[in-house]
Computed example of a mutant assay.
Amino acid sequence: MELQVLGCSGGIGAGNRTTSLRLGDNVVIDAGTGLADLPLAELARIDHVFLTHAHLDHIACLPLLLDTVAPVRTTPVTVHASQSALDTLQRHIFNWQVWPDFTQIPHPDRGLLRYEVMERGDTFTLGELTLTALPVLHTVPAVAYRMDSGKASVVFSGDTDDHAPFWQAVAAVDNLQTLIIETAFADHEAALARASRHLTPQRLLAALGALPGGLDIRITHLKPFDHELIMRELTGQASAGLQLKRLLQGDVIRF
């Protein structure tokens, strides 16, 4: 299985794209601005969108995706998310004011958009791939995702504060290869990070100490103006043997 990083920044500008990861050719995790760089034919092949939560940087391109592929698709795109996130989409995005309700287009009986609830602990299987929603702590209801190819697993945190149930779930993954974990703010913005339920280098490193060694750990969702500082703080404070890399647009993780 291949996981392609379409976007992984905590902001825009200077080539930065917000969060979107592609599994194979028909599944994406979050629909941030990175999704917009795919060719039209590849956009049209997306059948499933799994959302970590409904904040704008993670859903920005979902409405535009549906509008773009509508003329060429004959089956709906299924959006998997918590009931809270789906309610937000219905109430605030696909409401005929901000954007058309694609559950009713092109016909109420044949909508291009289909919702499927996926709460913490739920699993969804596509061929050999199994996705499981894991608990995280953010300012709105949110989940992380475990992606299991049958040979190895990748865990993507989405947006989260330090959260014991998340770390317990990560530690329980018996075939964990890669952890993609957010660190949105540098240590000098610890108060803002706590208020917005994001991690800082100091708090992430404290939590990583409980995990086994040898993991491939990728850092995502860095704020653009501080991304170099965040990585310096992480690598400068990391214990010996802990290998941390910044997740980059264009990265491909095979598992």
Rank of each mutant, 00 (worst) to 15 (best):
V98G: 00
S149Q: 03
A184M: 02
P201G: 08
H227A: 00
L64C: 04
A41T: 03
A31H: 05
E42F: 00
A238S: 14
A206F: 00
H138A: 15
I105H: 10
H138W: 02
G150D: 07
H227R: 13
P224A: 01
L89C: 05
A206E: 14
A14R: 15
T220L: 08
G127F: 00
D67E: 09
T19E: 13
Q237K: 12
S84W: 13
I180N: 02
T125H: 09
A164L: 15
G24S: 07
G214K: 01
L208C: 14
V49S: 13
L126E: 15
G10M: 01
L131Q: 08
M1F: 03
A81G: 15
A31P: 13
L113W: 14
L43N: 05
Q237T: 10
R17F: 08
P212N: 06
D174L: 12
L43Q: 10
I12H: 07
P224K: 11
D187F: 07
T74S: 11
C8K: 00
G111N: 06
L192M: 14
V77W: 03
S196W: 04
L40Q: 07
V143I: 10
K223L: 10
W167P: 12
W96Q: 15
H80F: 14
L3F: 10
Q90K: 14
V49W: 12
Q243S: 11
Q177H: 15
F156H: 06
D67K: 14
G24T: 00
V173R: 09
E128L: 04
G24H: 08
H80P: 13
L89F: 11
L234M: 03
G209D: 11
L62D: 01
Q83K: 10
I181N: 07
V252E: 02
R22G: 12
W167N: 06
D148F: 01
Q90I: 02
